[in-house]
């Protein structure tokens, strides 16, 4: 590790890369979790007979 980050400023360099990795990971997880949640909800709605295809083709991204 000292090869990569040095010894004098190890804490500063490692924490910079650490916080970057953490925030990027949180962003990726947030997007994927939302994607799964919305897909599940849409599947449940479709099971009730409400089609998202109709919502999408109906002409708005709001689907209104």
């Amino acid at each position: 590790m000292s090869e990569l980050f040095g010894t004098k400023y190890f804490g500063f360099i490692a924490s910079s890369y650490g916080i970057t990795a953490l925030v990027l990971l949180i962003m990726v997880v947030w997007v994927i979790v939302n994607q799964r949640r919305f897909r599940r909800q849409l599947a449940e709605m479709e099971a009730l007979g409400y089609s998202r295809v109709k919502a999408a083709k109906s002409g708005t991204v709001d689907g209104e």
């Binding site: 997007v31 939302n34 849409l42 998202r52 991204v61 709001d62 689907g63």
Partner: peptide, 14 residues
Amino acid sequence: AMRNEIMRRQIRTL
């Protein structure tokens, strides 16, 4: 995220 937002709006509509 845009795809998610589109799905969120579709869910809201439904």
